[in-house]
Every structure is written in structure tokens, then in C-alpha cells.
Nucleic acid binder design. Structure first.
Ligand SMILES: [Mn+2]
Ligand SMILES: [Mn+2]
Ligand SMILES: [Zn+2]
Ligand SMILES: [Zn+2]
Lengths: 154, 154
DNA sequence: TTTATAATTGCAAATCATTTGCAATTGGAG
DNA sequence: CTCCAATTGCAAATGATTTGCAATTATAAA
């Protein structure tokens, strides 16, 4: 929701990632990065599409761009179980691994820093003969606002 | 994969659940319960459909039946992030809450008993003003078999 | 700056899992 | 055995996402 770091600082870094893979820095990609930068919570392709500046681009382009940005590690994909992919910009240096608490009423999302105990995860890997194990973890509940206006949606 | 309890013991219990809600015990529903009973891992609607005995039923009926069985608490739905719902029979008494370790190569699924620390979850709820919080947690990695035959799929 | 060309885009049609409307069928209470 | 709400088959509708293809464009090289 807020823009912490300077937006301009993002482009050079992204450019580098793109160039490294012989990809182009296009209008749609630039816009998507800016949009993700100013909304610091997971956004769906449609939400991003709706935020595109005048002229915009085709929705298919948003999908393709997000794929690319994800593949080169600039963006992280999240799945909240509603069959709609959501994307967040990864902070440079950050591996983007964190979790969320989602309101099942109004879909409000809060970042959760707590992670599943790494030791436990290693144990699970060991027990099953897996070399490396990762996880997907999201929390669900009814946010205080929705809990108040009981019955209604935020 | 194995049939632990007596399959016959399942029906009376299911019947009770269904009757309690003025629902009928039909062929398709009986078949689905039996299929889920003998495969003790999460199954997709298509997989269940493919296991239907001769005569079978329409795929739409499988979807509708699974919905119903889920709504009356006989079946639990899981989401492994591939946009295909999977279902497991709940052991009576069990709330069905557990997790899985999924091979990203061959999709083999192993049940994981370890759960996210309840105290930590309560803390997350408290911190955010939520009354009650649940979670969805799945583990991913490459199973030992797939790790060996590197490159190929099980 | 101009050129050459691989990458990108718009558009429409295709996918894929899942849902739904509706008419025909059926389980099971009375 | 009767009756009727619950169920089912079928085909069409959904909704997110993907894809084929021809037209457009970013950009490295000349
Ligand atoms: Mn986040
Ligand atoms: Mn399981
Ligand atoms: Zn809410
Ligand atoms: Zn495997």
C-alpha cells in the first residue's frame, strides 16, 4: 500500500535482470513493476491490469509479463486457495519467502513474518529422504473489522 | 493406498450424516466414498471419476457429490497449488487437519503429521485482532526416487 | 542513425477445472 | 405403493489463464 524505497531505484535493477536474459524493457513491464511497487500486497493480474496507466495493454500481456518477471525472480507468486494467482514485488536481496493472514470475509491481507520452524522442515525432509523441502503456508480467519459488522462484508 | 478400517463400517456412518440433512444415499455417493476409502491419499475429481465402477456417473455428479460430502464434513478438500482440488475421506473423529509433502516431479504425496505450532498461531491471531485463525500448509520437494532418475519423471 | 531481427504485443480462439440450468429420474418417508 | 424433494445427465456457461499468429518494437550491431 505504501512506497517505501524510491521507485526509480527499482528500474535499473530490473533492467539489469531483464537484459541479462536478452529481454526487453517495455512499457507494460515498466508499468507492472511500478504498480507492484506502490501496492505492497499481493495483487491479481486483473487488479494490476486495472491499474495500468492510460493506453494500458492487453490482459494477456499482463499475464505474460508476470510470468517473465516471476521467472527472472523479480516477482513472487502467491496462492491463497481461491484459484486466482497473486503477485508481489520481491525486495532486492529478499527471497520473497513470507506468509499471509487473509480475511475470509473481505480478503484483506496482512503479512506474517513468522515462518514454519526450519529445523522441523529439515526433519521432515530427512524422514522422507528428500534433499530439500520448501513450504507454502497461509493463515485464514475473520479480521476484526469483519468480525464487528457481523454478517456484512467490509 | 491401503484400506485400514472395514469399508462396511463407513457406510452406516455416512448414511447417518446424509440422512440428518435430508440427503439421499445414491449410487454415485456410495461409490465415491468407497473409492476415497481405498485410496488413502488426496484424489482429484477426475481420478475419482476414473475409478467409478461400471455404469459410473457423470463427471458433474462427482463434482456435486464431493461438494456435498465436504459440506457435511465427511470429506476434506486440499489444495496443492496446481488449481486442481483434491479430496480425502476424513477418519471419523478426526478433524482431517494434517499436511502433505508433495513431489514436484511426480506428484507423489506423503502425509505429514507435523503441524504449525498452535501457540504461534494463537500469537498471530492475537497480534492481528483475529478471534480464530486456521492455516493451510503443504511441503514441496523432489522425492528420493525422482532425485535418483534425475531428469526423468517417475 | 539506420538496419536487422529476435522479442513483444494485441486479438481472438483455445484450454481446463468447475459450475449451472433444466428436464428426466429416483430414493425413501409416510 | 405414492408422491415429491433430491439427484442426475447433458450440454452450455464460467472464469482464470494460455496460445497461435501476424503486426509491432526494443535494441544490439553496423
Ligand atoms: Mn506479502
Ligand atoms: Mn492426507
Ligand atoms: Zn475482513
Ligand atoms: Zn517423485
Amino acid at each position: 500500500m505504501s512506497h517505501c524505497s524510491h521507485p526509480a531505484a527499482l528500474l535499473p535493477e530490473a533492467s539489469e535482470c531483464l537484459r541479462r536474459d536478452a529481454r526487453k524493457i517495455t512499457g507494460p513491464r515498466r508499468s507492472i513493476l511500478e504498480i507492484l511497487h506502490r501496492h505492497s500486497h499481493p495483487m491479481t493480474s486483473k487488479e494490476i491490469f486495472a491499474q495500468m496507466p492510460k493506453g494500458g495493454c492487453n490482459l494477456a500481456t499482463v499475464y505474460r509479463s508476470l510470468h517473465l518477471l516471476e521467472s527472472i525472480g523479480l516477482v513472487k507468486r502467491y496462492d491463497f486457495g481461491d484459484n486466482i494467482a497473486r503477485f508481489e514485488l520481491k525486495a532486492s536481496g529478499d527471497d520473497g519467502h513470507h506468509h499471509h493472514l487473509i480475511c475470509t470475509r473481505c480478503s484483506t491481507v496482512v503479512k506474517v513474518e513468522t515462518c514454519f520452524p526450519p529445523e522441523w522442515e529439515k526433519q521432515i525432509a530427512r524422514e522422507n529422504g528428500y534433499q530439500k523441502v520448501t513450504h507454502r503456508l497461509e493463515f485464514f480467519g475473520v479480521c476484526p473489522r469483519c468480525a464487528t459488522q457481523n454478517g456484512e462484508v467490509c
